[in-house]
């Protein structure tokens, strides 16, 4: 497993940024040997068949879903069992339920048991950058800059689909940062929920679990979630020069999913 191919869905949006980051990325496997990462732009079913994992980039989720259907990729993606990471629009596509869709609804891949709201912070003038702490990330004490652009918000965690692992929290926003502008379409009430217990090691603040589940928290603070080999981030790690989120995806999601690793 010294060579892996990581695909980036290249239909619309910021896919060059992901491909550029992957091309420069260095990841060491469990034996501390560097893995060769081959970035692959995915526009057709043939492109997808080359990949060991897929990143769905930011862009417009309505456009990406339409182009995926027209390119014969949508059904393949619904059945895809390899690791997928969705950023922003990609996170919307990974979610089972979406609020604030275009009229008549929109197609999603429904890979993760979460409900998201599109454009949860309002219009572009509310887009922002914020420092995040991400558990499990290399050099964890150094904050990771989250770039949130017309970002979706997590509204609730849905009952776990039978046979699927629970949803885990990978990163959350500091409490101080809350959608406040009048154009934010979802209020805190829409997003009050009880956090599912998370796997230790992934919770940003190792809390007293009972306390957390007793206190409903504003789920809009959850900005990166994992369920099995699916990862969603409501922000754009590909818009920074920091490649630690890509490293995390390859190390924690892609490498363990390879056939050799499972033996």
């Amino acid at each position: 497993m010294n060579k892996i191919t990581v695909g980036v869905l290249a239909l619309q949006g910021g896919f060059h940024e992901h491909l550029n980051t992957l091309a420069k990325l260095k990841v060491a496997d469990s034996s501390a040997a560097y893995v060769t990462i081959v970035p692959q732009a995915v526009k057709t079913p043939e492109d997808l068949s080359l990949c060991d994992a897929l990143i769905i980039p930011g862009g417009e989720s309505t456009t990406i879903a339409l182009l995926a259907r027209l390119s014969g990729l949508l059904e393949l993606l619904k059945e895809y069992e390899k690791p997928i990471w969705g950023t922003c629009a990609g996170a919307i596509l990974l979610s089972r339920q979406v609020v604030g869709t275009k009229k008549g609804g929109q197609e999603v891949l429904a890979k993760m048991d979460v409900k998201v709201g599109r454009n949860g912070w309002g219009s572009q003038v509310e887009s922002f950058e914020a420092d995040l702490t991400v558990k499990g990330m290399k050099d964890e004490s150094r904050p990771f800059k989250g770039v949130f652009i017309r970002a979706p918000v997590i509204l609730s965690l849905l009952p776990t689909t039978p046979g699927q692992p629970p949803v885990e929290i990978v990163a959350r926003l500091p409490d101080e940062i809350t959608p406040s502008h009048e154009s934010a379409p979802f209020s805190a009430v829409d997003a009050l929920g009880i956090c599912v217990p998370s796997t230790p090691g992934y919770l940003p603040t190792p809390p007293n679990e009972r306390e957390v589940s007793a206190q409903p928290e504003d789920l809009r603070h959850l900005v990166a979630l994992r369920q099995g080999n699916h990862l969603l981030t409501t922000f754009h790690p590909e818009l920074t020069r920091d490649d630690r989120f890509h490293e995390l995806f390859v190390r924690e999601f892609v490498l363990p999913s390879l056939p050799e690793a499972k033996e």
Partner: peptide, 28 residues
């Protein structure tokens, strides 16, 4: 931009989020 006592910072309207939206419109 705001910075709280723990040094957590956030900022809206930065050039990063302005050019970032354009980057999300690409190939569109």
């Amino acid at each position: 931009s705001t910075q709280n006592k723990e040094g957590v910072s956030s900022a809206v309207g930065t050039f990063g989020v302005k050019s970032g939206l354009a980057q999300m419109l690409k190939s569109g």
